[in-house]
Amino acid sequence: MLLQLHAQISSWWHGTPLPARTPANIKFQRWNHYTNGRWIPLARNTPSTVAPHPSPGRLEVVTWNVDAGSPSPGPRISALLQTIEAMANADVIFLQDVNKAAIAQLLAHPWIQQQWYSSEADDSKFGKQSFATVTLISKICLFNHSISLGPIWRVSLPSRFDRDALCCDLVSNKTPQTKGLARIRLINVHLDSLPINPSRRPQQLSIIASYLRAAGHGLVAGDFNPVLPEDDEIVSDNGLVDAWTYLRPSDPGFTWGARGDKPFPPNRLDKVALHNLTPSNIRILQTSSIKHDCTDLEFSDHLGLSCVFTWN
């Protein structure tokens, strides 16, 4: 009851719709930008009035598990960022499995400092974990698409691994034929790992889907860890559209183990699932190798996903 009341008060205070009956701990935070040689919070997170935007709207999201457990996290994430910059016209970047060394390198990267707003200014949101999720929003995207940054917050999930959902809202003008503003909710996730029964992933995605429905439009993307048979249905069971199966139903779309160098079969661990948005293109982004102790090391054990989506 108290958690539900807290959610309602937070929804009103931050001007963002939240599901009234979701018993989840919500922690609002601030967007950060780089200025005068350091990362600092933006003055405000609430959306501002924006100019009319042509219909339909279009954005590209890239999601990538950056592999917290491998050596050389700094050089690896630098190589990953170079790949995203070269291969994708990303408006939104979701990263999972970002450890403390990687977040320091990420925040020191000139491209990130110059062109992106970050959910993090340091590693203070990691809590008990040695890694966390990070969301980046392009400054150019906001300007070109007449979009405002809305609130950003974390929702603690029922989890064996202290996982959460990193949620944020973007606010854009609707088409001239409609009134008001369209709110697009973006949720970055790293669902529970391993084939442990009973699985917490169905409950986790159910909670996440309720946040998307409360906003009206949105997506959840990241590492879904679908390693049990029941995981095959949790996207559709929650009324969401799996962008990969929608656009490429005959393609397995493996994002992990595709080279056959893992002890488990290849799997499509990473997904983009949408609510009231239309996927128009999705593709896999490949890794490259860096040098570590005179050997070649892939910069992640996951491949990335780039998904373009539209809305009216």
Rank of each mutant, 00 (worst) to 15 (best):
S130P: 00
S206R: 11
A273M: 09
A90S: 10
Y117S: 04
F28N: 07
T245N: 00
S156T: 15
A258Y: 13
I137E: 01
T16I: 07
V241S: 10
C307R: 01
A215Q: 08
D237W: 08
D123M: 03
G239E: 09
G74K: 11
I207Q: 14
L2A: 12
W39G: 00
D296Q: 02
L305Q: 02
A68Y: 15
H145Q: 12
S130C: 07
I112A: 00
P176G: 07
S199N: 03
P110A: 13
H190G: 05
L194K: 11
T22C: 09
R76E: 04
Q29A: 11
S306P: 02
H217P: 02
N173T: 04
T245W: 03
K179F: 08
N36L: 13
S193T: 10
Q4F: 10
G253A: 08
D97L: 15
S300H: 01
R283I: 02
C167G: 10
D251Q: 05
W12F: 10
H109V: 11
T255W: 06
A104Y: 12
N188C: 12
D261N: 15
N238V: 06
I282M: 09
R283Y: 08
D270E: 10
A108I: 13
Y211H: 13
T133W: 05
I187C: 03
I147T: 09
N225A: 03
I196Q: 15
D91C: 05
R200P: 12
N276F: 01
N197H: 11
V241W: 04
A43Y: 13
N25R: 13
Q204T: 10
Y211L: 14
G253T: 05
S250C: 11
C307Q: 05
A86H: 13
T295A: 03
I208Y: 04
G257P: 09
L228C: 00
Q204C: 11
F94D: 06
S156I: 14
I207G: 07
F224M: 03
C294L: 07
Y117I: 09
D296G: 01
A90N: 05
S11F: 05
L305K: 00
K179E: 13
L277K: 00
Y246W: 07
V61K: 02
I77F: 01
N144A: 09
K179S: 13
I112Q: 00
T49M: 06
S119D: 04
